[in-house]
């Protein structure tokens, strides 16, 4: 409840403190397109990015947002930054109002949390899901993350906006982009109608090969019953009980490795799950920069 209150405060802050309103004609967005509560952008950079984001939004009818916060966990109970991105969309009623209803407001939101260097990309609406489909999300990440890793915030946001423009320019193009980084969590890309289209062949493979595998295992078990004359390779049953005398028991530590993998805290939101845990056609990525 307290977190919710903080989120509402953030909304008020975003609505009142931003010098440039985002409500372009036709848009129902109630916040600025670029919001920096962490103070990583200069006023000049902020204005330049805002203008660019607004221009792209109005040109293509898809609102583009950049929101930077100090610590996302102050605004949500979830431990997943993507949840805050979705909550923001719902609470702010973000997106371009194209008159097809609230669930069809096209948008792309980049939310960044500076403390733990988390980010989330969330898109919504028919156009949003076509332009920023899974390969599109990878393209966005590929464009902006290298800048963020070298703390070039303006460069990263600018690259993000440029890439978003390119993707909106050709939303119908079939994208076969393969990402170079695997440290990313995908959100909700398997929802029917979002245009990813990768589920049916996989499901068909399951339908064919899983029964074949089960039949093979069962028939192999039947077949093994037919051959029982087998050579013995061990002599466990001839070990004299209590005869084992251990002479050496030595366990020597060699080294240690640590591997960190980004996970989704909501198990139903992992890649390929396609569950109904989110509404309104949300899909997106989250990870570290």
């Amino acid at each position: 409840m307290r977190k919710r209150f903080v989120l509402v405060l953030l909304i008020v802050l975003l609505c009142t403190c931003m010098s440039i309103p985002a409500s372009a004609e036709g848009s129902s967005a109630t916040i600025a397109n670029v919001v920096d509560t962490a103070g990583i952008l200069s006023g000049e950079d902020l204005r330049a990015l805002e203008e660019k984001a607004e221009s792209i939004s109005s040109s293509y009818g898809c609102s583009i947002y950049i929101v930077v916060v100090e610590d996302f966990t102050r605004y949500t109970n979830s431990r997943d930054i993507y949840d805050l991105a979705v909550e923001m969309y719902e609470t702010y009623q973000l997106g371009w109002d194209n008159g097809k209803g609230e669930d069809h407001r096209d948008s792309l939101l980049l939310l960044m949390s500076m403390n733990d260097r988390d980010y989330a990309l969330d898109t919504n609406g028919y156009l949003g899901n076509r332009a920023f489909n899974n390969p599109g999300m990878y393209k966005l990440e590929e464009a902006m993350i290298p800048y963020f890793r070298s703390n070039d915030w303006y460069g990263g946001f600018d690259a993000f906006l440029e890439c978003a423009r390119d993707l909106l320019e050709s939303p119908l193009q079939e994208n076969t982009y393969v990402p170079s980084s695997g440290n990313v969590v995908e959100h909700g890309y398997e929802q029917p109608g979002t245009g990813s289209g990768g589920k049916s062949p996989f499901a068909a493979l399951i339908v064919v090969f899983v029964p074949i595998l089960i039949a093979f295992i069962v028939c192999s078990a039947f077949k093994s019953q037919m051959k029982t004359a087998n050579r013995m390779t061990t002599a466990e049953r001839y070990i004299v009980p209590g005869s084992m005398r251990m002479r050496v028991r030595q366990d020597e530590f060699v080294n240690r490795t640590v591997q960190r993998t980004v996970i989704s805290t909501d198990s139903g939101r992992g890649s390929g799950s396609g569950g109904g845990h989110f509404s309104g056609g949300h899909s997106g990525h989250s990870g570290k920069f």
Binding site: R247, N255, T261, T265
Partner: peptide, 18 residues
């Protein structure tokens, strides 16, 4: 939102009579 996997490597020796 991270899974941390720590892998420790050992050299083990056992000797005995049966």
């Amino acid at each position: 939102n991270e899974r941390i996997t720590v892998t420790e490597y050992f050299r083990v020796r056992r000797a005995g009579t049966l």
